[in-house]
Simulated scan of single mutants.
Amino acid sequence: MSNERRPAEEFEVTADLPDSPMHTTGTDHVTLVGSNAEETIAFYRDLLGMPLVLRQPNLDDPDSTHLFFDTGDGRILTFFVDDDRPSNPRPQRPGVGAVHHLSFSIDPERFVEVREALEDAGRGYNEFDRGIFHSLYTSDHNGLTIELATDKWAIPDDRRGEVLATAQRIREEDGADFAEERHIEAALEELDLDVEKFDLPDAPTGAGTP
């Protein structure tokens, strides 16, 4: 038996449902092991603006508490916390199985306000124009990288996968290394969707930045 694995380039990119035994219907929630309630709530509720919608004992470990935050569209982010656990702002451990970052959507019309709020809170950040979206990267009280991202175009939520898959095909035909503005614009036009671009600040791409 060969140990060679097929590279990513050999797998088709498409918004069509795969021929699989099941199909998920969306993200229900993501759960992280947090530190304590006070500092978790201070960052996710009081800074990022996520309502704390449920609090109960951790059903698998009643000595800790389970906090539920609404990320803005009914999708939930939860934390297992314990008041005896101090926060650890050191960067997260890298490697297979680690969480690289979490990304949350923000309103493009409030992008500058969000950036200013990070500055006012003393939170360091990096800002990048990723070609198809625009992002701020900061970190929470436990060193987890948090991306605050906004689309550069008004893309309907129910067509997002279709738009990205179409842009991928156009990018490959174009011979570009990554998706750029022209690829998304061409995808929107091909799919007969409005091309409404938001006014966002200029920023570097961040390509090659670890």
Rank of each mutant, 00 (worst) to 15 (best):
residue 113 E to Y: 07
residue 27 T to Y: 11
residue 9 E to K: 11
residue 196 E to N: 14
residue 44 Y to Q: 01
residue 49 G to P: 01
residue 80 F to N: 13
residue 40 T to G: 04
residue 126 N to I: 15
residue 157 D to V: 14
residue 162 E to N: 04
residue 64 S to V: 15
residue 205 T to I: 05
residue 58 N to G: 02
residue 88 N to G: 08
residue 87 S to T: 12
residue 147 E to G: 00
residue 191 L to E: 01
residue 192 D to K: 10
residue 204 P to Q: 04
residue 26 G to L: 02
residue 139 S to A: 13
residue 114 V to D: 07
residue 127 E to W: 08
residue 4 E to W: 13
residue 48 L to N: 01
residue 160 R to L: 11
residue 131 G to V: 07
residue 73 D to F: 13
residue 60 D to A: 13
residue 93 R to G: 11
residue 176 A to W: 05
residue 182 R to S: 11
residue 133 F to E: 11
residue 186 A to K: 10
residue 200 L to Y: 03
residue 193 L to F: 04
residue 189 E to C: 10
residue 96 V to K: 11
residue 99 V to E: 01
residue 202 D to T: 07
residue 146 I to E: 05
residue 100 H to N: 14
residue 182 R to D: 11
residue 192 D to H: 10
residue 125 Y to N: 03
residue 8 A to P: 12
residue 11 F to V: 00
residue 116 E to P: 06
residue 12 E to K: 13
residue 206 G to E: 01
residue 171 R to C: 07
residue 34 G to W: 06
residue 56 Q to D: 11
residue 122 G to S: 00
residue 58 N to T: 02
residue 106 I to L: 06
residue 58 N to L: 08
residue 162 E to R: 05
residue 147 E to R: 00
residue 66 H to V: 09
residue 172 E to P: 02
residue 24 T to D: 15
residue 32 L to P: 00
residue 130 R to Y: 00
residue 87 S to K: 12
residue 134 H to P: 05
residue 207 A to V: 13
residue 57 P to E: 04
residue 73 D to C: 13
residue 165 A to H: 01
residue 104 F to L: 03
residue 191 L to K: 05
residue 80 F to Y: 09
residue 37 A to E: 14
residue 84 D to F: 15
residue 200 L to H: 06
residue 116 E to Q: 09
residue 172 E to V: 12
residue 173 E to C: 08
residue 7 P to I: 03
residue 144 L to V: 11
residue 145 T to V: 12
residue 197 K to L: 10
residue 197 K to S: 14
residue 23 H to F: 10
residue 82 D to Q: 06
residue 40 T to M: 04
residue 2 S to H: 05
residue 20 S to K: 14
residue 32 L to W: 06
residue 1 M to R: 13
residue 131 G to S: 06
residue 134 H to T: 06
residue 60 D to S: 14
residue 27 T to F: 15
residue 25 T to Q: 15
residue 63 D to F: 10
residue 48 L to P: 04
residue 121 A to V: 05
residue 84 D to R: 14
residue 188 L to I: 04
residue 116 E to R: 10
residue 103 S to W: 01
residue 49 G to L: 02
residue 206 G to L: 01
residue 5 R to K: 14
residue 35 S to G: 10
residue 124 G to P: 02
residue 204 P to L: 07
residue 108 P to M: 03
residue 101 H to T: 00
residue 5 R to N: 15
residue 85 R to H: 08
residue 54 L to Y: 12
residue 31 T to G: 13
residue 4 E to A: 15
residue 179 A to W: 15
residue 153 W to F: 09
residue 160 R to P: 09
residue 189 E to F: 10
residue 203 A to R: 01
residue 62 P to T: 12
